[in-house]
Design a protein around this nucleic acid. Structure first.
Length: 902
RNA sequence: GGGCAAGUAGCUCAGCCGGUUAGAGCGCCACGUUGACAUCGUGGAGGCCACAGGUUCGAGUCCUGUCUUGCCCACCA
């Protein structure tokens, strides 16, 4: 984990002094209820940005903390998936900024080659035109137009979520600098033999008319058919093969059987006739054939099937391509040439059927590859493409992860990463589209020489002939793979590159761990000699209410986070995202959770209103802290430590929930309530102390919460600064991250916890006895171990449990007979409800209480009489068990006495 | 076919190194008073922690197996 450098950035914990002038108090117009984020969020974002809080100088001597923002695709608008990434990254950045790190969060956008290509082709198609009609130059103009518009939308959306990223360093994958980086990377990898060109079987997308990488092919199980087809043998008879793609018969160059398959032993080496074509093909033997499947004989189509391609290499078979780039059949398809691939399948089946060459047809489920972007069925096809030789890159990347140079959070994703690195194939990086970085490759029209160079050469270096540039562009993930360093100025050794590389955390959705994270690691190590980031935090995916995944390729109407921000505020959205799940787990966008988050912001708002008003007590030297003060400050320090620890472990959900627990359950429900009598009493020093405690707890809580809910905390900070003159700095965004002062160990924490428990028990008893909520009742206490705290804090109990009068007995005194008797927080509590208690009901209650206690004691006895437990359990666990048993026995005795005297 | 994750209250989910009687929010029931808050307060009901074994003094938590769901990877025609 990243260590926080505490010594350098001590927290400011000086007591806050208050403004006494009433005029300085926040006017009612400033703290209206309920909290309304409208306008507030935009105002603060502008101020932060204008003051340069997002933009580090670089190299000012502080430890850097750097995140490269995953660049959103310029294919449209942001969705919740982006909101998730922004929430977590902004959380990390704001937290580390407060801790005093020099933080850089570098934003940018991605040209999304095939995705944007599809968007543009759609636009052109709507005008009734085609790509080829308008030409490459006009197409590229359309592209830059679109980039401008889409980029503006995305920038404004990121601002609305509150992303405190450095817009002055914003980059785009196709800006001049990054294009230079892409060319440089290509040239270096080519020179090192890590990029090559060749004719191989690739995944062809006939709709987008381009090759795509293995990762861009999504396999789906579809219900298809398995046709058993008779191939006539040249010297008589026939052989039956099974196929799911009958149209590929036209590309067959062999039939294969298993070498040990006795059924076909006599046929090996004989020749068969390809239906509908002149071609005769050999029957060969190959281990890859599964005799159990189909007829045990398989047609071999090396030009259109990965298995068959390998078999073709082994047996030196002819490789025939029967497809055009658009998915129609080419001249090699004989009578079917010109037909679309789907049409051709029907035609071929009909042709075979008419000649009685189909033996049978079976229903057959199998997996079919579809284009990630286009959705169309991918055809394996022979094609001349460029590849990255991945083996050496993957080995180095895997080693970096194994050696812990890169850590995954949660760690299980490291295993997934390594497993994938083991099975990885070479990466096809050329695309036959017009959106993207054009390959820095030129071919000589005269001598055929290939030139790979950063800048366009004037003529062929070999023969001086005329050059033509390769028309292909690079896979969009090639430029994305350079992102953490290309954005910092690589290949130049710029100040930013020196100051901020390697980056600290890469945080993104786990769905692009292979597409993106792996490639950044591979290319980063190869090109910069260093890992591109130390930590990888993978968040879960955002799912719609119905469980479907929110994704770029399939946007739905409700996917725009702007709707939620309009209605609940960005803080609510962020808090909901940060706390809705556990690390790496998927999130569901649930309405009630957003409401709950908004309500939390409002609760905080109202607690702040109270705290602001409380400061009107005037500038009086505060009296000593009471037990309640020490209790809440202990809880505060505990939360401070826990929150820091949880954030360091990337455990955002627990961190956020813990802060809410402090604010709502401890601060609001107990501390604020307990402070009211002091604030309104006639002891100015006590009131002043109460106000000071409220101020400290609230301002510290706001700092803890700021990374989660930046806007409302900043707004409240500014209101508090009007009444707390010492509250620094001016904006919470640059305030120090709190540090614990160790007050969680104050004994007052346990004491007040005990009183609070007593309050709860009394409230419960009142309810059961049917006492009206407003009515004050008498209580008689035997305080036991709590006598000291009760001396000063009896008001706490009296007020919150609505007790009056509160009678405290000495140890020897006898409690009143006719009363409800309770034991809580180490005290004996008697409520003499004259005329109100039903003896039978009370007897029943005490009896069941006795049973409960007997059960507890029995369980404790069982454990404590177990020798092995005494021997093997840790001493503190055994001791605790003993203490608990003693307490239970004492409670039981008291309860029994009450029952007997009733 | 291989792998991963999940299965806990009506719903959505937490639950750390195994440690008394398993938590939150929402929903539900009942009642509302004190000039922060009705986007609120107080009290309550509600759980075979998927199932079966095992390890252990002790299992929601660790191990094995089974079932269900989701996802990722994969060339079986």
């Amino acid at each position: 984990m990243v260590e926080s450098d505490r010594s350098e950035f001590p927290g400011a914990h000086t007591p806050l002094t208050r403004v006494t002038d009433d005029a300085a108090r926040t006017g009612p117009e400033a703290l209206n209820r309920p909290y309304d984020p409208t306008g507030v969020e935009e105002r603060w974002y502008r101020l932060w940005e204008d003051r340069g809080y997002f933009s580090p100088e670089g190299g000012d001597g502080r430890r850097p903390f750097v995140i490269s923002m995953p660049p959103p695709n310029l294919t449209g608008v942001l969705h919740y998936g982006h909101a998730v990434i922004v929430t977590f990254e902004d959380l990390l950045i704001r937290w580390r900024r407060m801790q005093g790190y020099e933080t850089l969060w570098l934003p940018g956008t991605d040209h999304a080659a095939i995705g944007t290509n599809s968007v543009l082709l759609d636009q052109i198609a709507k005008q009734g035109r085609t790509r080829d009609e308008i030409g490459r130059e006009v197409f590229e103009e359309l592209f830059w137009d679109w980039i401008g518009k889409s980029g503006a939308t995305i920038r404004s959306q990121l601002r609305r979520v509150g992303a405190s990223c450095d817009w002055s360093r914003e980059r785009f994958t196709m800006d001049e600098g990054l294009t230079r980086a892409v060319n440089e990377a290509f040239v270096r990898l080519y020179d090192r033999g890590l990029i090559y060109r060749g004719s191989y079987l690739v995944n062809w997308d006939p709709q987008d008319r381009t090759a795509v990488s293995d990762l861009e092919v999504e396999h789906e199980i579809v219900a298809g058919k398995l046709w058993h087809v008779r191939y006539p043998l040249v010297d008589g008879g026939h052989i039956v093969v099974a196929t799911t793609r009958p149209e590929t018969i036209l590309g067959d160059t062999a039939i294969a059987v298993h070498p040990d398959d006795e059924r076909y032993a006599g046929l090996i080496g004989r020749r068969a006739q390809v239906p509908a074509l002149e071609r005769q093909i050999r029957i060969i033997a190959d281990d890859a054939v599964n005799p159990e499947f189909g007829s045990g004989a398989v047609k071999v189509t090396p030009g259109h099937d990965p298995n068959d391609y390998q078999m073709g290499i082994r047996h030196e078979l002819e490789m025939i391509n029967i497809l055009n780039e658009d998915g129609t059949l080419n001249e090699n398809a004989g009578p079917f040439a010109g037909q679309d691939r789907f049409e051709a399948r029907v035609s071929v089946v009909n042709w075979l059927d008419e000649r009685d060459l189909i033996e049978k047809v079976e229903e057959h489920e199998h997996s079919v590859g579809h284009g990630q972007r286009s959705g169309t069925i991918i055809e394996p096809m022979l094609s001349e493409q460029w590849f990255v030789r991945i083996g050496p890159l993957a080995a180095a990347a895997a080693a970096a992860v194994r050696d812990g140079k890169i850590q995954f959070h949660p760690p299980r994703f490291a295993d997934e990463f390594l497993r994938w690195m083991d099975e990885i194939h070479d990466w096809c990086i050329s695309r036959q589209i017009w959106v993207g970085h054009r390959l820095p490759v030129w071919y000589c029209q005269d001598c055929g020489e290939t030139t790979v160079n950063n800048d366009e050469p004037e003529s062929c270096p070999a023969c001086g002939g005329v050059l033509e540039r390769d028309p292909d562009v690079l896979d969009t993930w090639f430029s994305s793979g350079l992102w953490p360093f290309s954005t910092l100025g690589w290949p130049d050794s710029t100040p930013d590159f020196r100051n901020f590389y390697p980056t600290t955390v890469m945080q993104t959705g786990y769905d692009i761990i292979f597409f993106w994270v792996a490639r950044m690691v591979m290319l980063g190590i190869e090109l910069t000699g260093e890992v591109p980031f130390r930590h990888v935090h993978l968040s879960g995916l955002m799912r719609r209410d119905d469980g479907s995944k929110v994704s770029k390729s399939d946007p739905q109407p409700g996917d725009d986070p702007a709707e939620v921000i309009d209605r609940f505020g960005a803080d609510a959205l962020r808090y909901m995202i940060a706390t809705a799940g556990s690390p790496g787990g998927d999130l569901k966008l649930v309405w009630q959770k957003l409401e709950a988050a908004r309500n939390f912001a409002n609760k905080l708002w109202n607690a702040a209103r109270f705290t602001v008003d409380a400061q009107a007590v005037g500038q009086v030297e505060p009296g000593p802290p009471t037990a309640v003060d020490r209790w809440i400050l202990g809880r505060l320090d505990q939360t401070v430590s826990e929150t820091t620890r949880r954030l360091e472990a990337f455990n955002f959900g627990e961190a956020g929930r813990g802060i809410q627990d402090l604010i709502w359950n401890d601060f609001c429900d107990w501390c604020i309530e307990a402070s009211k009598p002091r604030l309104r009493g006639n002891d100015p020093a006590a009131a002043s102390r109460a106000a000071a405690t409220l101020a400290e707890v609230l301002t510290t809580s706001l700092r803890l919460l700021h990374p989660f809910m930046p806007f409302v905390t900043e707004e409240l900070w500014s209101h508090l600064r009007r009444v707390l003159t010492d509250l620094e700095p001016e904006n919470i965004i640059i305030a120090d991250w709190p540090e614990s002062q160790g007050r969680e160990r104050d004994p007052a924490v346990a004491e007040i916890d005990g009183l609070a428990e007593a309050v709860r028990v009394i409230r419960n008893a009142r309810r059961e006895a049917g006492v009206e909520p407003a009515r004050r009742i008498e209580a008689v206490l035997k305080p036991g171990a709590r006598s000291a705290v009760l001396e000063t804090e009896s008001d706490f109990l009296a007020r919150l449990a609505r007790i009056d009068p509160l009678v405290i007995l000495g140890d020897g005194d006898t409690p009143p007979e006719k009363s409800i008797s309770l034991i809580a927080g180490g005290m004996e509590i008697h409520l003499p409800l004259e005329g109100m208690i039903d003896i039978d009901v009370e007897r029943k209650r005490l009896t069941s209480e006795l049973e409960r206690l007997d059960g507890e004691i029995a369980r404790a006895d069982k454990a404590l009489s177990n020798k092995k437990f005494i021997e093997r359990a840790p001493a503190d666990v055994v001791q605790k068990r003993r203490d608990d048993r003693v307490a239970a026995v004492s409670q039981r005795n008291t309860t029994r006495t009450r029952l007997d005297t009733l």
